[in-house]
Amino acid sequence: MALKPEALDKVIHEPARLLIMTHLYVVTDADFVYLKRATGMTAGNLSTHLTKLEGAGFVKITKSFQGKKPKTTCKLTAKGRKAFEEYRKNILEVLKT
């Protein structure tokens, strides 16, 4: 049976967000500095995409202070993890020959 277009989550399908989701999928949590280095994005770009992923309920963002410095920690929510696995399964299905 053919996959419906909505089978590929639009929030995850965007390349930058897919990259963030991939990096968060393999770890328990990661801070902003790590994600910036892992994805190669600018701080502003990364922040925008993280906000979108947080809005979709895929990422949980925790802001704290380490001394006087702000610290942002991100982790995939259970919903985000499930959505990523679903996306992965579906995209593999689409690309199957």
């Binding site: 770890v27 801070d31 902003f32 500095v33 910036k36 280095r37």
Partner: peptide, 11 residues
Amino acid sequence: SEPRIGKVTLA
């Protein structure tokens, strides 16, 4: 290290 390369908790 963490101020330079960030912090990550491995699964």
